[in-house]
Design a protein around this nucleic acid. Structure first.
Length: 155
DNA sequence: GCCAACGTTGGC
DNA sequence: GCCAACGTTGGC
């Protein structure tokens, strides 16, 4: 079972929004990057753990834990011309973009900021701490995950 | 198939 | 709001 870091801009969709969603579950739609799409298609499985990360805010960081609750399926927002995520390349017969469902699990008692993660030498190699790591879905190792939980007040 | 131009992400 | 880093597009 793998661990992932999912980025979200809290003014668009926050951990709080996830908690308040029906069934505390949402479709993780709008992924429009091939590397992230390939992770969704090939690597991400039901039951995988998600570190919910708030980006483009002060401070950015991991705020909670969620769980993947579906296999990959077509991101239908790509077919909706009114959607911000509309992409005419994606056909219903051959969907370009995929998504999974994600369910709220818990808040971290204390958020773990990007700054803290960068300052912790035990997290060396963690993708999100690297400069220019724009990928919105990133793999996280079990060891790094345990450290982040501890930093967030869980263990 | 190269690569310059452009658009977006996201920390600061 | 700035701008570095990166991904994508499109002319050639």
């Amino acid at each position: 079972m793998a661990i992932w870091l999912f980025k979200s801009e809290p003014f668009k969709f926050s951990l709080e929004d996830l908690k308040n969603s029906p069934d505390q579950t949402t479709t993780w739609d709008g992924i429009r990057n091939y590397q992230a799409r390939n992770l969704i298609r090939d690597e991400i499985k039901v039951g995988d753990t998600v570190l919910f990360y708030h980006s483009r805010c002060e401070p950015p960081g991991v705020v909670g834990i969620a769980e993947v609750t579906s296999e990959a399926y077509p991101d239908y927002t790509a077919w909706d011309p009114k959607s911000d995520y509309y992409d005419k390349k994606s056909k219903e017969s051959a969907p370009t973009w995929l998504m999974v469902d994600v369910r709220y699990e818990k808040d971290l008692p204390q958020m773990v900021s990007l700054k803290q993660m960068k300052e912790n030498p035990e997290l060396e190699g963690l993708m999100v701490t690297r400069r220019g790591a724009r990928l919105s879905i990133q793999p996280v190792s079990e060891a790094h995950y345990e450290i982040i939980l501890k930093m967030g007040g869980l263990s």
